[in-house]
């Protein structure tokens, strides 16, 4: 997409430049060629291709029912995140840290106690809003164990910039320990 955009931008700049260079050349310019060719056919062709691609990618990113997924709850409030998930000995609640197993898709169910927030871990997935009265589900997946930074992407008032959290992705052993309730 970036390369395409750069190419189109280059094309427009070149046409602009040449318009000044051409001064003096006297071939007539055809309105239809410019407008139908450049203004209609060209964008329609490129945009349809791009759009199709975008839709396919979007479709693949959607949360699909799947036995391997883990479902966690994320409740946002000003200015805190509370995560809830099943553990071996009953539900586990964590604050501002989300523990997940690496290599497994996770469905995060987003809710809010007050205003709109948005859950975003740039390296794991796109973002999704937490809206009063409308639970949303976002699919994320950490391919490798590690710590990932997450933040609130929807402006939520004075503490917005500090409304972040961490996602800790565990390897199999770490995950088992977490589930058993041992502090990681």
């Amino acid at each position: 997409m970036l390369a395409g955009a750069a190419a189109i931008f280059g094309l427009v700049c070149a046409l602009l430049l040449l318009a000044f260079r051409r001064r003096g050349a006297d071939q007539p310019v055809s309105a239809t060629a410019w407008i139908v060719g450049g203004g209609l056919l060209f964008p329609i062709a490129t945009l349809s291709a791009l759009l199709g691609y975008g839709l396919i990618v979007g479709e693949q990113l959607l949360p699909r029912a799947d036995s391997a997924t883990l479902r966690v709850g994320a409740e946002a409030r000003r200015w805190q995140w509370t995560f809830t998930q099943p553990g071996t000995a009953g539900p586990i609640r964590t604050r501002d840290v989300l523990h997940v197993p690496a290599g497994r898709p996770i469905d995060v169910e987003l809710t809010t106690r007050d205003v709109i927030h948005a859950f975003w871990v740039p390296r794991l997935a796109g973002k999704m809003d937490a809206i009063p009265g409308r639970p949303n589900v976002l699919r994320i997946e950490a391919h490798r164990p590690g710590v990932y930074h997450g933040l609130c992407a929807e402006f939520c008032g004075a503490g917005h910039a500090r409304h972040g959290f961490r996602v800790v992705a565990h390897d199999a052993a770490g995950w088992a320990r977490f589930q058993a309730g041992e502090a990681p």
Binding site: V12, L16, F20, R22, V29, W34, G38, G39, L40
Partner: peptide
């Protein structure tokens, strides 16, 4: 369409 109309006018 507009952008190419402008570019075409310049040409």
């Amino acid at each position: 369409v507009q952008i190419f109309a402008w570019l075409g006018t310049l040409w």
